[in-house]
């Protein structure tokens, strides 16, 4: 039993921690108010009036839909690639010790440990050297590379908890490799993969730094938002898009947390 049970925090610490949390959350809440403002030329506070008309305006914007569709397609394919690569890598690293194991963990983590701009400019210069033109697939190439680590982290944590003797038992009882994977391994790691996949999707859906180097003229939703941030043209539409993005990314994070909350190294603790 830990000796610090039931202690009460000093008041100063409570206040400082509350202010810290307020600092983290108030800006995001503000987005929700701005989505309803009637003001369209400036960022005036308090809003002169409230309206829901911008939701309809945004709904009828083809450029927003196109950017959204590109982002979703990129995120879906990158997540699929990352799921396969991340799971394979996690299975290999967790089931045995071999020469170069540490190097492989480092290799997986590196794309997210180095600043995004380095991944971006590295890919950009590789495309320039090999004369690969920008396309949908150049975006996917970049995204899948840094999504692998999210799936890997979740899968590795789960594999560590899964006993290897279950696989041996399955094989002893006459199942072949495919059956063992289908009926023994997969059910054990399914929720970890789901959590990792959702986080990878969220990561890709939101990525902008690497994308600016690999997209050429194409617009993903974050790039659409970035243009609005630098040269604001349609503030009300941007406000609505921002609010929707907050809501859409909130759900997978909460769900991923729910899936991995007990015991595992919890999903997402290393973005």
């Amino acid at each position: 039993m830990r000796s610090d049970h039931g202690q009460i925090a000093p008041l100063g610490l409570k206040i400082a921690a509350s202010f810290g949390l307020l600092f983290l959350h108030a800006p995001i809440l503000l987005i929700f108010v701005y989505a309803f403002t009637t003001e369209e030329k400036s960022y005036q506070w308090p809003p002169p009036g409230l309206t829901a008309q911008w939701f309809a305006v945004t709904w009828n914007r083809p450029d927003v839909w196109e950017a959204l569709s590109l982002s979703v397609r990129v995120a879906a394919i990158s997540t699929a690639v990352a799921l396969v690569l991340g799971t394979l890598c996690a299975a290999a690293v967790s089931r045995s010790k071999f020469f170069g194991r540490e190097t492989i963990s480092l290799l997986v983590i590196l794309p997210i440990a180095l600043p995004g701009i380095i991944t971006g400019i590295a890919l950009r210069s590789a495309f320039a050297l090999t004369d690969i033109p920008f396309s949908f697939w150049t975006i996917v190439l970049g995204h899948a590379t840094f999504c692998v680590v999210v799936v890997y982290n979740n899968a590795v944590a789960r594999f560590r908890r899964t006993s290897g003797s279950m696989i041996e038992a399955s094989m002893d009882l006459g199942a072949d490799g495919v059956q063992t994977f289908r009926y023994v391994v997969l059910p054990n790691i399914a929720t970890a993969l789901l959590a990792g996949g959702m986080l990878a999707f969220a990561l890709s859906f939101d990525e902008v730094i690497v994308t600016t180097f690999t997209a050429g003229q194409q617009q993903t939703l974050p790039i659409w938002m970035l243009e609005e941030l630098i040269r604001p043209r349609q503030r009300p539409v941007t406000n609505v898009v921002a609010m929707v993005v907050v809501l859409v990314t909130l759900l997978p994070i909460l769900f991923a947390y729910y899936l991995t909350r007990d015991g595992d190294q919890i999903a997402g603790s290393g973005k």
Partner: peptide, 17 residues
């Protein structure tokens, strides 16, 4: 976790406001 994973651009946009 939630602020960590919320959209990077939206966070910047909030501060622009």
């Amino acid at each position: 976790m939630l602020p960590l994973w919320s959209s990077y651009l939206v966070k910047i946009y909030a501060w622009k406001l």
